[in-house]
Write a protein that binds this DNA or RNA. Structure first.
Lengths: 158, 158
DNA sequence: AACGATAATCTCGTTCAGCGAGAGAAAGGA
DNA sequence: TCCTTTCTCTCGCTGAACGAGATTATCGTT
């Protein structure tokens, strides 16, 4: 049982934040008749688009930890809803690219827009130096969690 | 489309953190033959226990946004796995209290323990003042997200 | 007391997301 | 050319979660 030092409250906040974001996604998904997975997929696809990465079913399945069958069903669903289009690669015709429709982009903004606006507004209460501290802190916590996950995956839980 | 000021990168970090935590839970759940929902439930129950709150099926269902049928199935599952016990309230015999077994507490620590240890270690790179800034920042973001979720639930997404 | 209204949980039948196994189709070496 | 690998999809199935409603207990009225 780890220490009960000053780090624990901070850790609980990280958890709480994570839960809060997850609940937001769930609520939004329900509101729009999407499954949580559908929204997660859409977010991944929008991120990929922003990063200039062309998403494929295999890549998407990896991101969401779905197997290929589940991924196909997911994409069928998104395609039927008009959020995504399958486009065959002309070079490697085994591949399929996933292209997000403008309607889905709008949907994405309707989810993140207000949340971003509110967050940015709340950040105004902090000095640039403080925000930089927050940025460094978050970066540290993200990489810690990622590292932890990487090691835990290999070792049998203690 | 919201501004692209200095707040956006920070916002993306919040999102990323949330995803990272979720993936950690998923990986741990898979490793132990639990469903993501089961682990979420266990975490809620452990939190309730720490807070001195006696959990009931109805309360748990609310936390996880499950309906009563789903909640019953979930508790059946957890009970079968030996993580939870149903205990009838002697005062109001309609109520059932959910008690977490020691084995489940251990399981919870085996998940959070290493993560907490690693996080606390990473926090050592920050000064107490910086950690306090992080604490205030997280608190602000949590309440912002919560407020956003509360308003969005009522209004039709723009 | 006896009654209806309300609350907490559970049962039943159903739907559909995601899984495992494997098929098909295209690419890339030997 | 053949064999292996890669990428996606099809099929059949399991079981998580849902909607509707039954069951049991409590509480406020009259």
């Amino acid at each position: 049982m780890p220490d009960a030092g000053p780090g624990l409250p901070l850790f609980h906040q990280l958890r709480e934040l994570s839960v809060e974001f997850e609940l937001s996604r769930g609520a939004f998904a329900r509101l729009h008749g999407l499954h949580p997975t559908d929204l997660r997929a859409l977010i991944q696809l929008l991120d990929a688009g922003r990063a200039g990465h062309r998403a494929t079913p295999g890549w998407l399945g990896d991101q969401l930890t779905l197997n290929s069958a589940g991924t196909t069903t997911l994409i069928d669903r998104l395609e039927r809803l008009g959020h995504v289009q399958r486009v065959r690669d002309t070079r490697d015709r085994r591949k399929v690219f996933l292209e997000v429709t403008p309607a889905a982009v709008d949907l994405g903004w309707s989810f993140f827009g207000p949340l971003i606006d509110a967050s940015v507004a709340a950040m105004a209460a902090f000095t640039p130096a403080e925000l930089d501290t927050a940025r460094r802190f978050l970066a540290a916590m993200i990489s810690t969690a990622a590292a932890q996950r990487a090691t835990a995956a290999g070792s049998p839980a203690r």
